[in-house]
Amino acid sequence: MQNPFTIGIAKNEDFCNRRQELADLVNYAKNGQKVVLYSPRRYGKSSLVRQVLKELEKVNFLTVYVDLFSISSEQDFISTLATGILKRIGSGADPRSLGDKVKNLFGRLIPVFEVTPEGLGFSVKFDRSTKLELLLDDLMEGVYNYIKKKQLRACIALDEFQEVTELAESKKIEGILRSHIQLQKEIAYFYIGSRRRILKDIFTDKSRPFYKSAFLYTLKEIPKEDFIPHIEKRFKESSKKCPSDTAEKIYDTVRGYPYYVQKLALLTWDITQKACNNDLIDVAYKLLLKMETPGFEGIWSGLTLIQKAVLKALAKEPTASPFAKEYLERYGLTIGGVQKAIHALLSKDLIGKDTEDKYRLTDPVMGDWLRE
């Protein structure tokens, strides 16, 4: 029997709760709002947004989802965004009439599509020597003119939006985008990201073009009272048992971190014959730690010595006072080193503040890995 848990994009029965968040985001989109959706990595942002877009399609929205994680240049950004938009506009169109549908969409960007055994493939081409602002103006104006002409409403979701800040011309891109987006009342925009400090700065720094131009919406853990029944149900549907107290241990072991709850449940299910128990969860958690170790080692190797020292200290002892004399002495740290390290670790989203205002590791499993 197939494992009922997933660590990829959650769809249909894999999608756990998020009823309030789903309702909020659908409502924001219907009202043409701009929303910054942020959380730590692997909290389910992409799954949630895809579910929102699915709901909007039911009321005839044009929906666009673009992942900007891999962009490496300004031209790459334009190509990725334009291709994502073109793909949605051309979705479901007859290949024989598609050319007429999109040929006047842009001025400087030329739509390219080809029929393959997998379906239609989309891309754009343009003169790489053309100025960035001309290309981006062409893209944003073309999309908006299409929406107006077709009398549509739309929602454009830009995942890992903070990656734009890594580009040399990032401020220019932000300015051009803002100048168009603020006039596009028919289009809702979702700016999604997991490097929370950087993403929030884009919209809260007075010197940035996007200052106060969107709602800030935090995606939190799925509540225990919702996740536990989901775990029980998925075990039961696959002819296995997981009592509520055992499902609660799965949740608590990884501090409710959505990705790890799913993964630990998946691994526990794999080694469960009939009924899940605490011993099996302990075995599964050791497997999870082993599987995550290469990723943690990659992160660790990219840190400076002082960043490593501060991260280890916070793994052992989360604190609201990392600059206190006693804390610094206990871990052999200096106030200047800690200040620089915390700034860097916050930017990398490796640490954050919890509800008690304590600095602690964002990733609970990495915390266990460091303590071991």
Rank of each mutant, 00 (worst) to 15 (best):
A82C: 00
L81D: 11
E297Y: 11
E356S: 10
P322W: 10
M291I: 13
L109M: 01
R96S: 14
K286R: 08
S97K: 15
L56F: 11
I250A: 02
T334Q: 04
V102K: 08
G367T: 03
R360D: 12
L25S: 00
D137C: 11
P4V: 10
L139T: 08
K87M: 02
N27M: 08
D349S: 13
K358R: 14
K312V: 03
I173G: 10
E326M: 01
L135Q: 13
S207P: 02
V254T: 10
L346C: 08
I173K: 04
K11A: 00
L86K: 01
G193S: 05
F5H: 14
E160L: 07
E114P: 07
K249G: 03
K172V: 05
R128Y: 12
E372Q: 13
L345S: 00
A23I: 06
V115L: 09
V124D: 03
E57C: 08
G302V: 12
K286M: 11
F227M: 12
L134M: 04
S129F: 11
I271R: 02
A313N: 06
W300I: 04
Q75V: 06
S79F: 10
P364V: 07
A157R: 09
E114H: 11
Q151S: 09
R330V: 06
L183D: 11
K30T: 12
M291Q: 12
P117E: 12
V261S: 07
A154G: 07
D100K: 07
K149Y: 15
E356M: 06
L219M: 14
Y260T: 00
A313I: 05
L158D: 00
K34I: 12
S47G: 10
T334N: 10
D137H: 02
V143F: 15
I335L: 11
L361P: 11
K11T: 03
L289S: 02
K308V: 04
S179L: 08
V102W: 02
R208G: 01
L314V: 10
P318D: 15
P209D: 07
G107E: 07
E169Y: 00
L333N: 12
P364Y: 08
I187P: 00
F15S: 01
E174T: 09
N3D: 04
D201M: 08
R42G: 15
D159P: 13
E356F: 06
I299H: 04
W269P: 05
T293H: 08
A168H: 03
L266F: 14
A82E: 09
T304M: 02
I78T: 03
P258W: 01
L81N: 06
K308L: 01
Q184H: 07
Y251C: 02
Q273C: 09
Y260N: 02
F69C: 06
T218F: 09
E232Y: 09
L345G: 01
L345N: 00
L167T: 15
T6I: 06
S244T: 09
S239M: 03
I202A: 08
A214M: 14
N278H: 05
A10H: 09
P322R: 01
G352T: 08
L303R: 13
E232K: 13
G142S: 03
L264D: 07
E232R: 11
Q262V: 02
K54S: 06
S97M: 13
K58E: 14
G298D: 15
K316C: 15
E21I: 13
G332M: 00
L328E: 06
K353I: 05
W269A: 13
Y259F: 12
I299V: 13
